[in-house]
Amino acid sequence: MAQETAGDRPASAAILVIGDEILSGRTQDVNTSYIANYLAQIGVDLLEARIVPDDMDAIAEALNALRARYTYVFTTGGIGPTHDDITADAVAHAFGVEIGEDPRAIALLRERFSEGELNAARRRMARIPKGAELIFNAISKAPGFWIGNVIVMAGVPMIMQNMMDVIGPLLAAGPPVLVETVEADGVPEGAYAEGLAAIARHHEGVSVGSYPAFTSAGIRNQIVLRSRDAALLSCATEAARAMIESLSKELAR
């Protein structure tokens, strides 16, 4: 299932979050941040995230757009036992393949449920698109699956995280993204915005961002720099730190 990327270009990824409960605000999406951090540590660039409702056409349309653009597409949600869990059907529709009960998935569910407990609703979790590989789930036994470059996982965070541990070693990993943070407390963004832009221009290969936050102690500004090149990141970080120190002294006068 692992894939290779062209040349030295890092693998890219998108996340498709599926569920009316996310869009309604009833359920908070914590899976995106977890997957983003996981991918950064193994050198896969997460470049896009979308949220779509429990709608067959919406899921298939988004999935086809994303899988044509990125190395991997991770989906979360919609693979449970209820009528609105339609992700597997939508994925099969997007790929133009049949879907049905997979004997491998049934065998996994029998490890948890007796024959009497394995009712029609629970058997829905064994419906897998033709040609997909299963993703083992040690917590509830109901598997996710991997078809083409699409990785379909549960929406329950604990189960999704378990599935990420299973598939992580199979991904086309690269050098991890290194991160440095420069504290800019007491220095307003407007004072360092121009200098920060210059640092970004002069250090190609380093992603530079400014992130303000409101705390009980007041506004807290942080400059976050990211790169796969440790030497380049160090150089850019020192430039940002020197800029903030200089501005802090000027503002203190």
Rank of each mutant, 00 (worst) to 15 (best):
R110K: 15
E111L: 11
E111V: 11
R112I: 01
R112Y: 04
R112L: 14
F113H: 13
S114L: 14
E117A: 10
E117L: 12
L118M: 08
A120T: 11
A120L: 12
A120K: 13
R122D: 05
R122F: 06
R122V: 09
R124M: 07
A126W: 15
A126M: 08
A126V: 08
R127L: 12
I128E: 05
P129M: 04
G131C: 07
E133A: 14
L134Q: 12
L134F: 12
L134G: 02
I135D: 00
I135W: 00
F136V: 15
F136A: 15
F136P: 11
F136E: 15
N137E: 11
N137P: 03
I139P: 10
I139L: 14
I139W: 11
S140W: 05
S140K: 09
K141F: 10
K141R: 13
K141N: 08
K141V: 13
A142K: 03
A142F: 04
P143V: 03
P143Y: 07
G144C: 05
F145P: 00
G148K: 07
G148E: 14
G148I: 00
N149G: 01
N149W: 08
V150L: 05
I151D: 02
I151T: 04
I151R: 01
I151F: 09
M153I: 05
A154R: 12
V156I: 14
V156C: 08
